[in-house]
Simulated assay, not measured.
Amino acid sequence: MNRTINLIDLGFKDYQEVWDFQSELLQEIVNIKTENRKNQLQKSTQNHFLFVEHPHVYTLGKSGDMSNLLLNEQQLAAKGATFYKINRGGDITYHGPGQIVGYPILDLENFFTDIHKYLRLLEETIILTIAEYGLKGERSSGETGVWLDVGTPFARKICAMGIRSSRWVTMHGFALNVNVDLGYFDNIIPCGIRGKAVTSMEAELRKKIDQEQVKSKILKHFKNLFEVEEFVAKKNSNKIV
């Protein structure tokens, strides 16, 4: 089992470009697995972890409801935002500047074959990360992601999650609100959940947060929880450059 992960920080990139890149990486892994089964081979598969920050964009998961987007085409354009209906689980969410988005493209057969466990460990990665800043992240029953003050009238989401998997290979992932403009969430019903607020690390701590420092903490906890052998930093490559 290959527990090394290629780490690629894409910087500030268009959503469609990165979605295409994720799809290419996933398909490469699936092709190897298919070839292994067909020819009784044991060729190892790669794992990848992408960090990225997107321009303003709203994405709707395959089970999402279009009515949770509160803007029409002209209003989207006026806000400099784009919209995509995509192939992950979950409903609608927003990505934008000041948000750390993480896309693990893992062959879970290198780690464990349990999607529920995968999601819980992604949540735990973020819970442990924000705990280093004095924030108590929690899970909310039936609502994937990381929340603050669960079970109170002040419950608010700080990290959204939505994934897709094919042949035990994952794509999409998490979006942690660090220094993001929360006003953009007013244009949607986040994750299709009415009556619950969205927050950010900046809003909670009342100061700008060093995003590179947050990324390093995310990787530290991800490595421990997933028992990663090592992260190997890779430069932007392929069509994504």
Rank of each mutant, 00 (worst) to 15 (best):
S216G: 10
Q211P: 09
Q211V: 13
K207G: 11
P190C: 01
T199V: 03
V198F: 00
F185M: 02
T199Y: 01
I218V: 15
D186V: 06
L205E: 14
V178Q: 07
S216N: 13
Q213W: 15
G195H: 15
Y184T: 07
Q213N: 14
E204F: 07
C191V: 07
I218T: 14
G195V: 14
I189L: 00
I218L: 14
V180L: 11
R206D: 15
A197F: 02
V178N: 11
K217D: 15
V178Y: 09
N187D: 10
N179L: 06
G183Y: 09
L176Y: 03
A203E: 09
L176V: 06
N179C: 03
V198P: 01
I188T: 07
D210Y: 15
V178M: 11
I193K: 08
G195L: 15
Q213M: 14
T199A: 00
P190N: 01
S200A: 01
G183M: 09
N187H: 11
D181F: 07
L205V: 15
N187I: 10
C191D: 09
F185H: 04
K208H: 06
V198A: 04
F174P: 01
E204T: 00
I218P: 15
V214N: 03
D210F: 15
I189Y: 04
A203V: 05
P190M: 01
V198I: 04
A203C: 08
D186W: 04
L182R: 10
E202D: 06
C191S: 09
S200C: 02
K207S: 11
P190H: 03
P190E: 02
G183V: 11
P190G: 00
K196I: 06
Y184H: 08
D186K: 05
R206M: 15
N187F: 08
D181V: 11
R194M: 01
L182N: 08
K215W: 07
N177A: 05
I188N: 02
M201Y: 11
N177S: 00
L219Y: 13
I218D: 14
M201L: 12
K207A: 13
F174Q: 04
Y184R: 06
I193S: 10
F185V: 05
I218W: 15
K207E: 14
F185N: 01
D186Q: 07
D186I: 06
I189E: 02
A197Y: 03
I209N: 08
V214D: 05
A197K: 06
F174C: 05
S200R: 00
I188D: 05
A197P: 06
L205H: 11
E202K: 02
A175K: 02
K217Y: 13
I188Y: 00
I209C: 09
A175F: 04
V198T: 07
V180H: 11
Q213F: 14
R206V: 13
R194D: 01
A203H: 10
A203F: 11
F185Y: 01
N177T: 05
S200W: 00
Q211Y: 13
